[in-house]
């Protein structure tokens, strides 16, 4: 019961009703090249705004390996405790499991920030971890001109997820799919991409 209450406190009620949940997995698996779905307005608005404010206040540390990536990670994640409680709850794992017809036992949470000059690169020798990844997007006032899109390369055309505040981009990383974040250019000014990457096993 506690977990159901927690879900109700955080998640848009639209995604808690059976009718919506039943529509998610057919849509997700319909994309054969890259099973994926984008759930807009995923959290209740006040919760998404709250997380964004916390992310803005965090102290971020640069993670830079020039030929692989440049992005920022929180120096201290304690202030994100309430979001972590939700994502680690059995209710959240169960909700996503029901949506995608899978069973999730463990999750890894990685808050990421991309600012001007940041990027990730595809790498021949680096194999991306397979499985379901959910990118929770807390980026605001974004323009396509800033780049910084989340791009998945597949055997066919690349699939591009634009930055949308309070969207959950859920993808199944397969052998043929690799993901990168396009270089964030100087037009961005002081704006930043905020993503919380949730890898589910």
């Amino acid at each position: 019961m506690g977990d159901v209450q927690l879900l109700k406190e955080w998640i848009n009620p639209l995604y808690l009703v059976q009718e919506t949940i039943a529509q998610i997995s057919p849509t997700f698996y319909a994309h054969q090249e890259l099973p994926s779905i984008q759930l807009s307005n995923f959290f209740l608005e006040e919760k998404a705004e709250h997380v964004r404010k916390v992310l803005d206040k965090l102290s971020w540390k640069k993670n830079y390996i020039p030929h692989m990536h440049s992005f920022h990670k929180p120096a201290n994640e304690k202030t994100l405790a309430s979001l972590y409680s939700l994502l680690n709850s059995s209710g959240f794992k169960s909700l996503l499991g029901t949506m995608l017809k899978k069973e999730f036992k463990n999750i890894i949470i990685e808050p990421l920030q991309f600012q001007h000059g940041d990027y990730t690169l595809l790498h021949d020798t680096y194999e991306q971890e397979k499985g379901i990844v959910c990118y929770l997007d807390f980026t605001k006032n974004w323009s396509e001109d800033f780049w910084g899109q989340l791009i998945f390369t597949t055997k066919a055309e690349p699939i591009i997820f634009p930055r949308i505040f309070n969207a959950a981009h859920i993808v199944q990383i397969t052998e043929d799919a690799q993901c990168f974040v396009k270089y964030v250019n100087s037009a961005v000014g002081k704006n930043k991409v905020y993503l919380v990457k949730v890898t589910m096993h």
Binding site: P66, L121, N185
Partner: peptide
């Protein structure tokens, strides 16, 4: 403008 080439060997 904004063109770039990131680190590679």
């Amino acid at each position: 403008k904004h063109g770039h080439l990131l680190p590679h060997d």
